[in-house]
Nucleic acid binder design. Structure first.
Length: 156
DNA sequence: GCCAACGTTGGC
DNA sequence: GCCAACGTTGGC
């Protein structure tokens, strides 16, 4: 079973990598995905043991700040079913849940953030979905080649 | 704070 | 099924 690689976006004002680091056993659920393509990735393609980049979006210095591991298969996003929750979606039904979440564990923070700006300077990464104009997808696959390339930047 | 690009909704 | 209007994302 081969490991897949992912990139997961979060706004640090909403949920930062330091908040994940502060959790018990540095593990938490990844809530609030409300986009069908992103949902399909986590529900249908993510597997326990896959790895992901933790990406800070909509902030001063957007970029990759850490590595996380998917620690379990997707299950229904309970925040969509709770009327008092800000992520409540009345169209989600407990019998037929519309939204899903996964649990993730922090593997480590990067030694330094690898910013979006830096990623954009590399011709080799030009094809990445993250770098496409207008790309807003919050969960996306990353090829092993790109994964390795980006991790090499960390020590440069 | 601005705004381009995007995904979703809903009238027709 | 089309597509205009809308709300959201997210870089800058």
């Amino acid at each position: 079973m081969t490991v897949r690689y992912w990139l997961l976006k979060s706004e640090p004002d909403v949920y930062s990598i330091d908040e994940l680091a502060a959790q018990k056993s540095r593990t938490d659920h990844w809530e609030g995905i409300r986009n069908y393509e992103a949902r399909n990735f986590i529900r249908d393609k993510m597997r326990k043991g896959d790895l992901g980049f933790f990406y800070h979006s909509n902030c001063d210095r957007p970029g990759i700040v850490g590595i996380i591991e998917i620690v379990g298969e997707a299950y229904p996003d309970f925040t969509a079913l709770d009327p008092r929750h800000k992520y409540y979606d009345p169209r989600s039904d407990p019998e037929n849940p519309r939204w899903f979440m996964v649990d993730v564990g922090l593997v480590r923070k990067l030694k330094r953030p690898i910013t979006l700006r830096e990623l954009k300077t590399h011709e080799a990464l030009k094809h990445m979905r993250l770098l496409q104009r207008g790309s807003r997808l919050s969960i996306m696959p990353v090829t092993k080649k790109d994964w390795d390339f980006i991790l090499k930047l960390e020590s440069k």
